[in-house]
């Protein structure tokens, strides 16, 4: 099995999403507050996994723009959960050594006096292994 095929299977496994359920209505992309920031759009996550183009997906900046706000999950008429799919792709990346999106060293300059602890723990959870 090719690496990408393996990774595609892994993404389906981690996310629990069956991409075949998607009917390509685009309601996820219509709901996404980060749409304009993303290069690969929410409704496309599904086809990238289906076509096993994981290389493009894991290099996409969409991984770091998704807010896990679950608007796409809540409104999807086919119960596909695109937000879980992109999180699984993010997991594929951060679980590899040295692939953290947030480094401890960059923290000081990102801080301001009002930053709530919650922001730091959340970002660490999402961006790092």
């Amino acid at each position: 099995m090719s690496t990408e095929k393996k990774q595609a299977e892994q993404i389906k496994e981690i996310s629990g999403v069956n991409p075949l359920k998607c009917m390509k209505c685009g309601k996820c992309s219509a709901s996404c507050p980060s749409y304009n920031e993303m290069d690969i759009k929410p409704h496309q996550f599904v086809s990238y996994v289906q076509n096993e183009d994981i290389e493009s997906l894991v290099n996409s900046k969409s991984l770091w723009k998704c807010l896990s706000c679950f608007a796409c999950v809540e409104r999807c008429p086919r119960d596909v959960k695109p937000g879980k799919l992109i999180d699984a792709a993010r997991q594929i990346v951060v679980r590899q050594k040295g692939q953290d999106y947030l480094l401890a060293d960059e923290i000081p300059e990102l801080l301001d006096p009002d930053v709530p602890q919650q922001l730091l723990v959340s970002a660490f959870r999402r961006y790092r292994r």
């Binding site: 209505c25 685009g26 309601k27 996820c28 992309s29 219509a30 709901s31 996404c32 749409y35 409704h43 608007a71 409104r75």
Partner: peptide, 19 residues
């Protein structure tokens, strides 16, 4: 493409967000 949300506004118009 589908519509994700319809948002009523004070001017009586409806903001339709779709794709």
């Amino acid at each position: 493409g589908q519509v994700g949300k319809v948002i009523p506004q004070s001017n009586g118009k409806l903001l339709v967000r779709g794709v």
